[in-house]
């Protein structure tokens, strides 16, 4: 099939656009993570909608997976609950469609690679486009192993977020910058997901290194790529601190814990508190 003429192809990155808008109106973007199907499908959809209604600019929906090597205990427990409740991959598309019908924020799916491979990489991309999704974050797929996904996302115009770590060489940072669309996920600290008291100073250094390796300075234009910092961020103050040097802040475990402890109303309250950190 001819790539350019695919009717669903998007020339403009929805995630890049949202980051640009957040950076011109406020200090930067807030990206919120929740797993699909936790505590059940309906409530996970309501909780995601509540995030957007309370200041989250971009949604990151996690696909529960049996072997989540990048996730800490809070997210593991939630995704295991979702799997135990019978999560199916098709639920992710259902959730994206339902959320997009209620709020206008771009949605990235955060997924380990094997479920995408088994679904069929091209079919996955097509169904994600049909559901109104923006793209993928791939924690265990790097640029050098990701040719098939890069081709599928080029064909469909989906955003693709690769990770940059404090241990990445300059050469690898440049690969991540050149091949990501939407943003580069800046892994703030060496470790798995989970709230931490301090966001590592390594994040600031890493964003500087990304800028030195081709990442656009200041607010990213919609066609280019921002730097968003994740892992360990759990308070509005930490969001504000990160947005001093990055284009966006990503919060996961703190939101999942709020949802686990106090349901949709609690996750809404925590999101609103985090969003305070985006104010100039």
């Amino acid at each position: 099939m001819s790539a350019q003429s695919t009717p669903t192809f998007r020339a403009v990155s929805p995630v890049g656009t949202a980051i640009q808008r957040a950076n011109s109106a406020r200090k930067g973007a807030l990206i919120g993570y929740l797993p699909v199907g936790f505590p059940n499908l309906a409530e996970s959809i309501d909780a995601a909608v509540a995030l957007v209604e309370n200041g989250v600019d971009i949604l990151e929906l996690g696909l529960p997976y049996s072997d989540p090597v990048m996730d800490g205990p809070v997210i593991q427990k939630a995704t295991q609950t979702s799997l135990d409740n019978g999560f199916r991959l098709s639920d992710a598309f259902t959730a994206v469609e339902a959320i997009r019908a209620r709020v206008d924020a771009p949605i990235l799916l955060m997924t380990y690679y094997n479920p995408v491979v088994q679904y069929g990489i091209d079919r996955f991309a097509d169904d994600l486009v049909s559901a109104g999704g923006a793209g993928l974050i791939t924690p265990d797929l790097t640029v050098d192993s990701g040719a098939h996904w890069i081709a599928a996302s080029d064909r469909t115009g989906l955003d693709r977020v690769f990770l940059a770590a404090p241990t990445s060489t300059d050469e690898r940072l440049r690969l991540a910058v050149d091949n990501s669309r939407g943003f580069v996920y800046v892994v703030s600290t060496m470790g798995v997901t989970g709230a931490r008291g301090d966001v590592d100073a390594a994040a600031r250094t890493l964003v500087e290194r990304l800028r030195a390796n081709g990442l656009a300075e200041g607010s990213p234009a919609a066609s280019t790529t921002g730097a968003c910092v994740g892992i360990g961020i759990s308070t509005g103050d930490q969001v504000a601190e990160v947005l001093e040097y990055a284009d966006g802040a990503i919060v996961g475990s703190a939101l999942v814990r709020a949802l686990a402890d106090g349901g949709v109303s609690e996750v809404a309250r925590v999101a609103a508190g985090l969003a305070v950190g985006t104010a100039r």
Binding site: V69, M70, Y113, P139, D140, L141, T142, D144, S145, F162, L163, A164, A165, P166, T167, S168, T169, R172, A176, V187, M190
Partner: peptide
């Protein structure tokens, strides 16, 4: 084969 791993471990 191949190498499907988080970026954090690629350097190692």
């Amino acid at each position: 084969g191949g190498r499907f791993m988080p970026e954090s471990l690629i350097a190692a």
